Amino acid sequence: MLIKFLAFASFREILGKERKLDVNEGATVKEVLAILASSCTGFKVAAFEDSDELMDYVLLMINNKRIESPRDLSRSLHEGDELAIFPPVAGG
């Protein structure tokens, strides 16, 4: 199944702005993030702890609705879903 993946700010520099991912039917958010981390070590270093857990500050959205990590990482994705990932954003 195809999903759309969007990356923002520093994650965009690492992964690119947008890409279509062909994943297994019923793939979870955690599985998709693992696929991205295995294909791009820069993303793995920027977004994951040494224990392979997603860093607390990483923000995720599915279809423009924020999800909570780690609770919602087991959420299954569906054909056409849009997964967005944001690094921490600070302003002043």
Rank of each mutant, 00 (worst) to 15 (best):
T41E: 13
V89M: 15
E49I: 01
A84C: 09
F11S: 05
R19P: 02
A47C: 12
R75H: 09
L77M: 15
N63D: 14
I67M: 02
E13R: 09
E49D: 14
G91D: 07
I14S: 04
N63G: 10
E18P: 08
A46E: 15
P70S: 00
K20I: 11
R19V: 02
A46S: 15
D22C: 01
D50Y: 02
H78W: 03
N64M: 03
S10H: 13
I3E: 05
M61S: 10
M55Y: 06
T41C: 00
I14F: 05
A37K: 03
N64Y: 01
T28Q: 02
I85P: 10
S10F: 08
E79I: 09
E49N: 15
K44Y: 08
A7F: 03
M55S: 05
G92H: 14
A37E: 04
D22H: 08
D72F: 00
P70W: 00
E25P: 08
A9G: 11
S38N: 15
L59E: 07
V29S: 02
I62N: 06
S69T: 13
L6H: 10
E18H: 05
S51T: 13
E79T: 14
P70K: 00
A7I: 03
D81Y: 07
S38Q: 11
E49Y: 09
R71L: 08
P87E: 11
L15Q: 07
L15G: 06
E25W: 01
L2M: 08
K17P: 07
N24V: 02
L54K: 11
G80M: 05
A46W: 10
L33H: 01
D72L: 01
V89P: 15
P87G: 11
F11Y: 15
K4C: 08
G42M: 02
G16A: 07
G91F: 02
A47G: 13
V89T: 15
L54C: 12
V45H: 10
L2D: 12
L60S: 10
L33R: 02
F5M: 04
C40S: 11
L73Q: 04
M1C: 09
P87W: 14
N63E: 06
F11N: 05
C40Q: 12
R66L: 09
L15T: 07
S10A: 12
E25R: 06
D81N: 13
E18C: 06
L21V: 07
I3C: 06
G91H: 06
D52C: 03
L54P: 15
K20P: 03
E53P: 06
V58A: 08
E79S: 13
R71V: 13
N63C: 07
E18G: 11
R19M: 09
S51M: 02
I3D: 06
G92T: 14
G91S: 15
E79M: 08
C40L: 01
A27D: 05
F48C: 09
R71Y: 11
S38G: 07
F43A: 02
